[in-house]
Computed example of a mutant assay.
Amino acid sequence: MLEVLEQAVLLGSLSPFAAFTWDNVEWNAEQPDPIDTSLISPHTRLADQTKIRAKNLAAWCDAKGITHPWAEAFARTQQPTQQLDSYPAELRAAIEAFEAVRSDPKAQAGRSPKSAIAAWLKSNKPDLSEGARDRIATVANWQPVGGAPKTPGT
């Protein structure tokens, strides 16, 4: 099954959340390199650390007629507009960062949404330029006003 999933990622029918490769790593390296998912080709040597979102895997299984344990959970929540495969890379990164940070209180702890998104992008999308990360963090920020929280009733 792992080989089938790897082939699906390499051929572009299954979109990874984070991709790692052995292509540019020295022969004695212990960790694979993260790569931008838009750089994946049929010749990429994916590492086991490559991650796929459960909802993307469920959608892929549905399209292939493969039974999976998430059928009920995703039938209630799946939205047609969430098909990120056709979106430009920065838009996909913005949506992924927004969803990841917004749903993780630990990622938000002690920082603004914009800085939490920027930190997530730096660790999960290292191939993005600093300018791209700043643009994405600005767009995906759900509290763009900033400043101290308002006093209730004022």
Rank of each mutant, 00 (worst) to 15 (best):
L2K: 14
V4H: 11
Q7H: 12
Q7S: 10
L11I: 05
L11V: 05
G12D: 15
S13V: 14
L14S: 03
L14I: 01
S15R: 11
P16S: 07
P16V: 04
F17N: 08
F17C: 08
T21P: 07
T21E: 06
T21Q: 13
W22Q: 04
D23C: 13
D23V: 13
N24S: 15
N24C: 11
V25Y: 01
W27G: 05
N28Q: 10
N28S: 10
N28H: 09
A29R: 13
E30P: 03
Q31D: 09
D33I: 04
P34S: 10
P34R: 10
I35G: 00
I35T: 02
D36W: 15
L39V: 11
I40F: 05
P42M: 08
H43C: 09
L46D: 00
A47E: 00
D48E: 08
K51S: 03
I52D: 02
I52H: 04
A54E: 05
A54K: 05
D62S: 13
A63H: 14
K64D: 01
I66Q: 08
H68K: 13
P69K: 07
A73W: 04
A75Q: 15
T77L: 14
T77E: 14
T77N: 14
Q78L: 13
Q83I: 11
L84C: 06
L84A: 04
P88Y: 04
A89F: 03
A89R: 14
E90N: 05
E90F: 02
L91H: 10
R92L: 01
A93S: 10
A94Y: 00
I95A: 06
E96K: 09
F98Y: 15
E99A: 13
E99C: 08
E99H: 11
V101T: 02
D104C: 12
D104Q: 14
P105L: 12
K106D: 12
A107Q: 11
A109H: 13
A109T: 06
R111P: 06
S112K: 07
S115G: 01
A116R: 01
I117A: 02
A118R: 08
A119V: 01
A119D: 10
W120R: 06
W120Q: 04
L121D: 02
L121Q: 00
L121R: 00
S123N: 11
P126G: 14
P126F: 09
L128F: 12
S129Y: 05
E130K: 09
E130H: 09
A132R: 04
A132E: 15
R133E: 04
D134H: 10
D134T: 12
D134A: 14
R135K: 08
R135C: 02
A137M: 02
T138S: 09
N141D: 15
V145T: 07
G146Y: 03
A148V: 06
K150H: 08
K150D: 09
T151Q: 07
T151G: 01
G153R: 07
